[in-house]
Design a protein around this nucleic acid. Structure first.
Length: 1188
RNA sequence: GCCUUGGUGGCGGAAUUGGUAGACGCGCUGGAUUCAAAAUCCAGUGUCUUCGGACGUGUGGGUUCGAUUCCCACCCAAGGUACCA
């Protein structure tokens, strides 16, 4: 009897369904095993052969575990909310639920044909209200929770409220909004209900926030970054604006560190862990606060005082920057110069002042009004002038200056001579101290009350003395506030220009350096020197604080910026040349020119800089994350509705007992005319808090919030949840999918715990796989699940790519267009001719020929014109070898033929070249030898009916290229067709046989004949047993074959090396066939071994061996070492590591005896050719190596 | 740029701790069977070769009796990520 796979597969699929063979029980004495494949989005296109790869792997593992005595949970479902169904609905008006249902049915049909061991009773669909009831439930749990940083976990919001009531929020350490104000218990208790709600929203794990989105008014929708090209929408080219919208967000940032740490405890692929690590983007460094120096007196409006009035009266307060703003630039330049070359007296006093550790700070060479004073204490308004010889000739001027500074600007000025300082520094210091103490504190106008501060995040606090400017993102809040009137126009123009560019454009354009000076200065926290503040679009508002301290010597971007705008590039590295580029290597850094950091390494300097910043209160060590809170609102129809209604603008949760809140019917699936999400089209979308149900919008009371007590009907949330909502806990729902009382029962989660094996694509690395971990951590914190990580082991199956096939059409290229009557013949050339021509072309292009020749040659449409010129002028013919000339010759021949054709048809056209156009051809028209079925090709493409095919060896051979499977490339292979022709078992085996599971590999249907004939051989091996006569004793050989197969297959499955076990099966069947094995005690266990891979044939063979019932629960065969023991071993004899011949010795022969036997052997002598071996290495059981 | 993974015949791939490189399959070549085709079966198939053998796992070095495997440098490909401060 033949192997009738169609009949067999149909029979057993029906049997499994009828008998619920794979139904998992929630209580069992057996150990549990939970194997999970990522559930699919049921797209309209159905499955192609790439999709089932992961499912087959999971299925094999599940079936194996069942044989091994586990209670296996292996469920499947559908991630059935999503965009394609909605888009189809927009186009056709068909309800997405219908589209989805149809697609699911088609998926189910395709999946059923492959013989998976799914427990279909546990199927879930994310778009089913019975399922999304629990998605809504989780949302409510998140809303009712906050993240306590002290306990480092999520807690019920009530615990927060009770803290507020007792002690306000002073002692609360929580993940919350940045703008959360401080309040006391009294404050809290006196707050209105609404204020309390507003404040709590700042702590909840899901919260409302104004988020910037790309809004396209013409399309009425929010666009993702990659849907925008050059600032306009990809579809339709409509303008896109950045718009703030109130949207739900998930406080995933609260979990950043735990999501990072958790990666260490799960067995997931390294690349996937890495991409999550990158995505979370932890960087350690410091936050540093720079005070912005207020404007000069011009802004103050009071020309009599160097110090502008407080902000309330219209300017900055407490000037650090005291120079006349009209000449500040020059003054600063000069001050800088003077600082570089102080006189000996100045230097001595400076050092002394610094050593003295006075309570106040001095700066030197500081611009005041239109002068530069030698030393100044801003806090006390004290100026110290040193009169050296250079000043002698201008005593009068000095007097004038002192007068101005003292009387007009209110400073105290004291003067010393060079001699006083040099000869008696102690006296000088004493005098300064006396004067300082006579000036009362607070009288000065310094202090730390700066109107504006810029906070930056830096990973290199060690380079703080290298800061020579600061850059703010153009969107930074401070930009408008600090810009000076002179710079206002330039800054505004720049900000506007940046706003027009999409974020993507900005990122793409890395090379252009651009920015504008704001006119403002910040003060260096240590040197107190003024630092110019720029804006530039290389600083991103969305990362860190949107501001950077620029260290041009240590960061290439800062370096480029400084070079471009001629900003100072101080070098703070020991022995490093920065004349060409920045020096960013931390490992070899030694800090210089940096005051207290001099001579320190990166690590030491970082530590010390942070400590100093903390001491002066201008910074602290900080860990920054790239991860942002996740926006959770979508302006779509086909998603989970939020269980939320609004009272007086504040969100309220619907009670869990009234869930699910089902999607309303709408007339159109587009946004409303007023720009509201599609749910805005629903006429019944209001919540009646008395009846607890959805009612008509008309019933919403018009009174609004001020008569809240009377209002009972409120508007519902119009957004829906994003795609990842439904997939973030589905794995837990499978444990108890029909439970209407809870998301899952405690018993179910306690029994199943977590997923033991999860298989799916790596494209979900930073989406589903991160968000679901976040939710699981949350569920863990709140005590709903026993494990913080839901999947211990995860495998990414590789992508199966398509092998596209090409035919090469010849197009004629004319120097002069022919008359209309010329009928261009359709000619296709075979692959060899095409590739040969191409190779010659590439060869010539890469040859050492002049650029002129090259451009002449490559001129025109591709290489064929070039080849034609070789024919005509034979200009490069000398370069070519014989083979290449032969190619040119046949090309020439074809060209001549076609030219005759052209002449014959009496056109005036002049043929100057031939062009090959590769055209995708359907892979189903190509056989295993890459030969095209020309007749079918013509039939499928009637325009080719009269086409000519230039063959090679009587065949038309197509070109091959590996590409992603796609309809437009005609390389999609449908599993149904394969099942029809070879059966599901063949398909399953072949998908596994193709290569390692995790690797991406090209599909080529031709190869399936290999596994198909294996199955036929397997079938044949069992056919002698059909009579059912008694068993035959197995031979030692039989047993050896069987047991080495058991060993290998078991190891392979445990290692997910499914491809190698398929070869093992092939070897086993080949050997047993050769041995003419008919022993039941060999063939029975073999059927079990094969059954995870090819379950249909295994069931059938099992039945034919005389068993009733399914093979699925039969114990896995036990490997026994004793059958593999050998009495002798064939030793490879190698010379200097190269194997030359083999010799057989008994396994128990010792090394010495082997060595002697080998050396005595004639072949050894032959190899040595008289040389004496230097050394002989014998590894018992492995190898003999002779060194000579 | 950075991170990750990989690079072995005409192709997919194997070699599990450093020990016979190319298992298994496709394709190809020859043969058997057949009126013929399909299917099936048998033999061969890394390269070169003076038929002794020599060479051979991206390239160049190194460690070792012995390297596809370990180390260093580089090249190439795929995937992820990015003015991330």
């Amino acid at each position: 009897m033949n192997y009738d796979f169609r009949k067999i597969e149909a029979k057993w699929q029906e049997y499994w369904a009828k008998n619920k063979t794979f139904k998992a029980s929630n209580n069992s004495d057996k150990p549990k095993f939970y194997a999970l494949s990522m559930f699919p989005y049921p797209s309209g296109a159905g499955l192609h052969v790439g999709h089932p790869l992961g499912y087959i792997a999971t299925d094999i593992y599940s079936r194996y575990k069942r044989h091994k005595g586990f209670n296996v949970l292996h469920p499947m479902g559908y991630d059935s909310f999503g965009l394609p169904a909605e888009q189809y609905a927009i186009q056709t008006g068909q309800h997405p639920a219908i589209t989805t249902e149809n697609n699911i049915n088609r998926y189910r049909e395709q999946l059923d044909r492959l013989g998976f061991s799914f427990d279909w009773d546990r199927e879930v669909r994310t778009s089913d209200p019975k399922y999304y009831k629990w998605t809504q439930w989780i949302f409510i749990q998140l809303f009712n929770s906050w993240y306590n940083k002290k306990s480092d976990k999520a807690e019920a919001i009530e615990t927060l409220v009770s803290q507020f009531e007792k002690e306000g929020n002073a002692n609360v350490e929580a993940a919350c909004d940045d703008d959360t104000p401080n309040f006391s218990a009294t404050d809290w208790n006196n707050f209105s209900k609404k204020t309390k709600q507003e404040l709590l929203l700042k702590y909840r794990l899901t919260y409302l926030a104004d988020t910037e989105v790309n809004w396209c008014p013409a399309l009425g929708t929010v666009l993702a970054n990659d849907e925008i090209v050059n600032g306009v929408s990809e579809r339709g080219g409509h303008p896109v604006i950045r718009k703030k919208m109130t949207q739900w967000s998930m406080r995933i940032t609260a979990y950043a560190q735990r999501l990072l740490d958790g990666l260490d405890h799960i067995d997931w692929p390294q690349p996937l862990k890495d991409s999550q690590t990158n995505w979370i983007g932890r960087s350690e460094g410091a936050s540093v606060i720079f005070n912005v120096l207020p404007f000069g007196e011009e802004q103050g409006g009071d020309s009599n005082s160097v110090l502008p009035p407080a902000p309330s009266s219209g300017g900055g307060a407490n000037a650090r920057l005291t120079g006349d703003s009209s000449m500040i630039g020059i003054l600063l330049e000069r001050a800088k110069e003077m600082r570089k070359k102080p006189t000996p007296a100045e230097d001595k006093l400076w050092q002394a002042l610094r050593r003295k550790n006075l309570d106040v700070k001095f700066r030197r060479q500081h611009p005041v009004y239109k002068y530069i004073v030698d030393f100044i204490c801003l806090e006390k308004n004290l100026i110290i002038e040193v009169d050296g010889k250079i000043h002698d000739y201008q005593l009068d001027k000095d007097a004038q200056r002192t007068l101005e500074l003292e009387q007009k600007k209110g400073f105290t000025v004291i003067r010393f001579t060079n001699d006083e300082i040099i000869s008696n520094i102690q006296a000088v210091l004493k005098k300064i101290e006396d004067v300082l103490s006579s000036l009362s504190k607070g009288e000065g106008r310094g202090g730390d009350n700066h109107p504006y501060q810029i906070e930056v995040f830096t990973t290199r606090p060690d380079t703080i003395f290298g800061v020579s400017f600061m850059t703010l993102a153009p969107e930074h809040d401070l930009v408008a506030k600090i810009t000076t009137p002179e710079q206002k126009a330039a800054v505004e123009a720049y900000v506007e220009a940046t706003a027009k560019r999409s974020e993507r454009d900005r990122m793409a354009d890395v090379k252009t350096v651009s920015g504008v000076f704001t006119g403002a200065y910040a003060e260096h926290p240590f040197t107190k020197e003024p630092i110019p503040i720029w804006i530039g679009d290389y600083v991103l508002a969305s990362y860190g604080t949107g501001a950077v301290m620029a260290v041009p010597c240590g960061d290439q971007r800062d370096y480029d910026f400084a070079k471009h705008y001629n900003i100072d590039i101080p070098n703070i590295f020991e022995g490093v040349d920065i004349s060409e580029e920045a020096f960013a290597d931390k490992a070899t850094t030694i800090i210089a020119n940096s005051d207290f950091l001099n001579g320190l390494s990166y690590k030491e300097a970082t530590k010390k800089a942070i400590a100093e910043l903390e001491r002066i209160g201008q910074g602290k060590g900080k860990v920054n994350y790239r991860l942002r809170d996740a926006v959770f609102s979508r302006q779509r129809y086909w998603g989970e509705p939020f269980p939320v209604y609004y009272v007086d603008g504040m969100p309220q949760m619907i009670d869990v007992e009234h869930l699910p809140l089902e999607l309303p019917e709408v007339e159109k699936y587009l946004p409303t005319e007023t720009g509201e999400p599609p749910l805005g089209n629903a006429s019944d979308w209001a919540w009646d808090t008395v009846q607890n149900k959805v009612v008509s919008n008309e019933k919403i009371s018009p009174f609004g919030g001020d008569r809240e007590g009377e209002q009972t009907v409120f508007p519902l949330e119009l957004n829906t949840m994003p795609g990842w909502a439904g997939s973030s806990q589905y794995f837990n729902r499978y444990m108890d999918p029909r439970n209407d009382e809870a998301i899952f029962s405690k018993e179910a989660i306690d029994y199943w715990q977590d997923v033991d094996l999860y298989i799916g694509g790596s494209e979900h690395a930073t989406g589903h796989l991160l968000y679901s971990r976040f939710w699981q951590h949350f569920m863990f914190d709140r005590g709903y699940v026993p494990k913080a990580e839901y999947a211990q082991k995860l495998i990414n199956q590789g992508m199966i790519t398509g092998t596209s096939a090409f035919v090469y059409r010849i197009d004629l290229e004319f120097g002069e267009e022919p008359k209309k009557e010329f009928k261009s013949p359709k000619i296709y050339v075979s692959n060899t001719f095409y590739t040969d021509c191409r190779k010659v072309y590439d060869f010539i292009i890469q040859s050492d020929i002049s650029d002129k020749d090259k451009s002449e040659f490559a001129n025109g449409n591709g290489y064929t014109k070039g080849l034609a010129s070789v024919i005509e002028g034979t200009i490069f013919i000398d370069l070519l070898n014989e083979q290449q000339r032969a190619v040119i010759k046949s090309f020439n021949k074809l060209f001549q033929q076609l030219n005759e054709d052209v002449v014959e048809q009496n056109t005036k056209g002049v043929l100057i070249g031939l062009r090959f156009t590769p055209i995708h051809v359907d892979v189903s028209l190509v056989n295993a030898s890459d030969e095209l079925d020309i007749e079918s090709f013509k039939k499928l493409n009637p325009e080719n009916l009269d086409a000519t095919f230039i063959l090679e060896d009587g065949k038309y051979i197509v070109g091959r290229e590996v590409e992603k499977m796609s309809k437009s490339k005609y390389n999609v292979v449908n599993p149904d067709a394969i099942c029809e022709e070879y059966g599901a078992d063949s398909l399953r085996l072949y998908e596994m046989f193709l290569g390692p599971l995790e690797q991406s590999k090209p599909w080529n249907t031709a190869g399936i004949t290999g596994v198909f004939s294996f199955l036929k051989k397997l079938w044949k091996l069992y056919s002698p047993l059909e009579g059912g006569e008694g068993d035959v004793e197995p031979t030692a050989e039989n047993l050896k074959t069987l047991h080495k197969t058991i060993k290998k297959v078991e190891e392979d499955i445990e290692n997910f090396s499914f491809n190698t076990s398929v070869s093992t099966f092939m070897i086993c069947v080949n050997e047993l066939t050769a041995q003419k094995c008919t022993s039941k005690s060999i063939l029975e266990p073999l059927a079990v071994l094969v059954s995870p891979y090819a379950p249909h044939i295994a069931e059938e063979l099992w039945e034919r061996l005389g068993h009733s019932g399914s093979i699925a629960e039969v114990p896995f065969p036990k490997f026994e070492e004793k059958y593999l023991v050998e009495s002798s071993k064939e030793y490879p004899i190698s010379f200097n590591g190269k194997m030359r011949f083999k010799l057989e010795f008994p396994t128990d022969m010792d090394s010495k005896a082997i060595e002697e036997a080998v050396l005595a052997h004639e072949k050894t002598q032959e190899q040595l050719q008289g040389r004496a071996p230097k050394k002989v290495i014998v590894v018992p059981g492995k190898i003999v190596n002779i060194v000579g």
